[in-house]
């Protein structure tokens, strides 16, 4: 499922996206999606490290990512990240 949203970018982010668009020769839409995905995966990794250290429970990690328990289990499987 995909959802379209419109966002306002500050000057710094706009310049960065424009730079990436020109240097990588890909549409700004794709650059923005790639950046968002990278940020999301970084957030997943950060929470996952906290989970593995026993700082947060699996359920807290799911909550922080806006996922149901079963969805998070599936996501970790997709990313080849162990449960314990």
């Amino acid at each position: 499922m995909t959802t379209a949203i419109s966002i306002e970018l500050d000057d710094q982010l706009y310049r960065f996206i424009t730079y990436l668009q020109k240097s990588k020769r890909i549409p700004s839409r794709q650059v923005t999606i790639d950046l968002l995905k990278a940020g999301y995966h970084q957030q997943v990794r950060q929470l996952y490290n906290q989970y593995l250290k026993g700082e947060i429970t699996f359920r807290r990690m799911a909550k922080e990512l806006g996922l149901e328990y079963r969805q998070l289990y599936g996501l970790l499987e997709e990313l080849n990240l162990p449960l314990a």
Binding site: G54, T57, L83
Partner: peptide
């Protein structure tokens, strides 16, 4: 359980 925090 395989959840470290819950285990503790």
């Amino acid at each position: 359980t395989d959840d470290h925090k819950l285990f503790i």
